[in-house]
C-alpha cells in the first residue's frame, strides 16, 4: 500500500515539475543550484558606508578653487601652536657630531 502511494506521489511530483518547469530531483541530490539562485550581495555591500565629501581631494583636482578643509586648517594651526611652545620637530642633524649628540640624548 505504502509503496503504491509513494510511487503515485513520485509521478505526481514529476508531473508537477514538468508543469511548473522546475528541476525534478527525487533523491534530493546537491546540484549547487542555490549558489546560482542566490542574489548577488556585492552591490549592496559596497554601499554600506555613507558618502562623504573629501575637501582635500576636490581641492587637489581643482587648484583654481581656494577651498579650506576645516580639519586640515585646524591641524596646521595646532602644529604652529606647538612650535611656538617649543614642541616642534627637532632639527635635522647637519654634521656627524650632531647626529651623535642626538643619539646620546636618546
Amino acid at each position: 500500500m505504502t509503496t503504491a502511494l509513494s510511487s503515485q506521489f513520485k509521478t505526481l511530483t514529476r508531473l508537477r515539475c514538468e508543469i511548473f518547469q522546475t528541476t525534478y530531483n527525487p533523491k534530493n541530490l546537491r546540484t549547487g543550484a542555490k549558489y546560482l539562485r542566490a542574489r548577488l550581495r556585492g552591490p549592496s555591500m559596497v554601499n554600506y558606508y555613507p558618502q562623504v565629501v573629501n575637501v582635500a581631494a576636490i581641492a587637489r583636482e581643482h587648484k583654481g578653487l581656494e577651498l579650506i578643509d576645516p580639519k586640515e586648517h585646524q591641524r596646521l594651526e595646532d602644529v604652529e601652536d606647538r612650535k611656538r611652545r617649543g614642541k616642534g620637530n627637532p632639527k635635522k642633524a647637519k654634521t656627524k657630531a650632531d647626529s651623535r649628540r642626538a643619539a646620546k640624548k636618546r
Binding site: 541530490l29 546537491r30 546540484t31 549547487g32 543550484a33 549558489y35 546560482l36 542566490a38 548577488l40
Partner: peptide
C-alpha cells in the same frame, strides 16, 4: 566565485 562554488558543490 559563485560559478566555482556551483561546480564544486554540485554532486552530480
Amino acid at each position: 566565485r559563485r560559478a566555482y562554488l556551483y561546480v564544486a558543490r554540485n554532486t552530480t
